[in-house]
Design a protein around this nucleic acid. Structure first.
Length: 124
DNA sequence: TTTCTCACA
DNA sequence: TGTGAGAA
């Protein structure tokens, strides 16, 4: 089922579509790119092209921002995600599913944000 | 028409 | 972050 992964990563959507789908302004979307939160590819005419994965990430970012996180924290988490993916790739053994990864990241977010006090005995 | 970059309130 | 200018 890797065909789907490729399709999700296939960047073909212009920023206008992203704006409507994420409720974000072009300004914000470009700013997040500057902060390396997303990495859209460029068309031959220098136009930004986003993938479905980018949309997901943008929605997540919007979510975290709503919850009171700042760029630095969000960046930190994505950097961690990147390094984790590399590690998993090297081990080339049992890769973690995206669901597990997101769950772990979300958990870290709650901890870092002080929204969680212990091992997650309760949910918000 | 849409998006891009850059600069300024 | 918003907005406007000038270009592609």
């Amino acid at each position: 089922m890797k065909e789907k992964e490729l399709q999700r990563s296939r960047a073909v959507l212009p920023i206008g579509t992203i704006m409507k789908l994420t409720e974000l302004t072009a300004r914000q979307i470009r700013y997040y790119e500057a902060q390396s939160l997303i990495l859209p590819v460029r068309s031959e005419s220098n136009r930004r092209l986003y993938s479905l994965n980018d949309i997901d990430r943008l929605l997540e970012i919007k979510d975290y921002l709503t919850e009171g996180f700042n760029m630095a924290e969000i960046k930190r988490v994505y950097e961690k995600q990147a390094s984790r993916r590399q590690q998993e790739h090297r081990k080339l053994t049992k890769p973690v599913s995206d669901a597990d990864l997101l769950d772990a990241l979300h958990n870290e977010f709650l901890t870092v944000g002080g929204l969680k006090h212990d091992g997650g005995a309760f949910s918000n």
